[in-house]
């Protein structure tokens, strides 16, 4: 598969949790979800608690069975063993066999991929260096801090050098430096051509590293697209203006220009949604002998987009 090819696709994916032998409609955790993930991108799935993120992730991993709809991962159903050879998974708040040390844990997971002893040893060396746990490789997992467990979790997810990596809240529990290293690691993985499917609450992180995002709320997909596209719709301009007379403000109102009340220095901020709006403001200010102090392009953050999407705006 080439960069840009679709490797995950869901069509009308629905999951309803219904207790066995009970009537009623049950809880619709995921509702007619249509998303796709392309080879080589970092894809973010975001949403508030209970929005259906984890259910979606479990469906993609084959841990849950869809009520209706289809899932394709590398063109196969997610429970296909051939698919498992090509994916890695770091769960949220991971827990591992804590009687093992890092070497033994990676060796165990590597054996499940049928690697030879030499391959297992070499891969463990590489990954422990990658996640910075070489020094702690002989310590039991139960002696690890939360951040160290998260890092060995990333190492086990990478044990088979996967083409597709599922990361569920990968920066949870990490200190700022650890979180930054994790983000850098994700970016490096993308540079190596890996596809990363990321579930996270940390929208600043998602905005910084994801190419495309899907925002879910109450099981529904409410926004889906490239991060730049989602944010470009929110682009606006702020024109900072000085030396405006009182009567000029009256004219501005007549021309339906949007501006703020002046600050203590008599500075006004005019808002324009596009380049034409900027031109109108500039022409107006020149016409009333005001001074244009600055013109700034502003954009909402992903968090703003997220909050509006959740509120249904």
């Amino acid at each position: 598969m080439a960069i840009g090819d679709i490797i995950i696709e869901t069509r009308e994916l629905t999951k309803v949790y219904k207790p066995p032998f009970m009537g009623g409609k049950g809880h619709r955790a995921v509702n007619n979800l249509n998303i796709n993930v392309r080879q080589g991108e970092v894809f973010g799935l975001v949403g508030p608690n209970g929005s259906g993120k984890t259910t979606t992730l479990k469906l993609l991993l084959g841990l849950l069975t869809p009520t209706s709809g289809t899932i394709s991962v590398f063109g196969e159903p997610p429970r296909n063993i051939a698919v498992k050879h090509r994916i890695g998974f770091l769960p949220d708040g991971p827990y591992f066999y804590d009687h093992l040390n890092a070497d033994e844990l990676l060796d165990f997971y590597a054996k499940l991929f049928g690697m030879s002893k030499e391959q297992r040893r070499r891969r463990a060396d590489e990954l422990l260096a990658f996640v910075g746990l070489t020094e702690a490789r002989h310590r039991r997992i139960r002696e690890y801090s939360k951040g160290m467990v998260q890092r060995i979790g990333l190492a086990q997810a990478l044990i088979n050098d996967p083409d597709l990596l599922f990361l569920d809240e990968p920066t949870t529990g990490l200190d700022p430096i650890g979180a930054r290293q994790m983000k850098e690691a994700i970016v490096r993985l993308r540079e190596q051509g890996k596809t990363v499917f990321l579930c996270s609450h940390l929208l600043a992180d998602v905005q910084a590293i994801c190419d495309r995002v899907a925002i879910m709320n109450e099981g529904n997909l409410v926004r889906f697209g490239a991060v730049e596209e989602l944010l470009s719709d929110t682009r606006y301009y702020v024109i900072t203006v000085g030396d405006l007379a009182e009567e000029a403000l009256g004219k501005a109102k007549e021309q339906q220009l949007s501006f703020t009340t002046p600050d203590q220095n008599g500075i006004h901020h005019f808002n324009a949604s596009d380049a034409d709006g900027v031109t109108r403001v500039v022409d107006f200010v020149r016409g009333v002998n005001g001074k244009i102090l600055s013109i700034e392009e502003k954009m909402d953050t992903l968090e703003d987009v997220f909050v509006r999407a959740i509120k249904g705006e």
Binding site: H85, E126, F130, D161
Partner: peptide, 20 residues
């Protein structure tokens, strides 16, 4: 710290011997 781009091949000689 870079992860090797070489994919571990499950069908190496050692693996084939183990399988046999």
């Amino acid at each position: 710290m870079a992860v090797s781009a070489s994919k571990p091949l499950p069908h190496s000689a050692g693996y084939a011997a183990e399988q046999a």
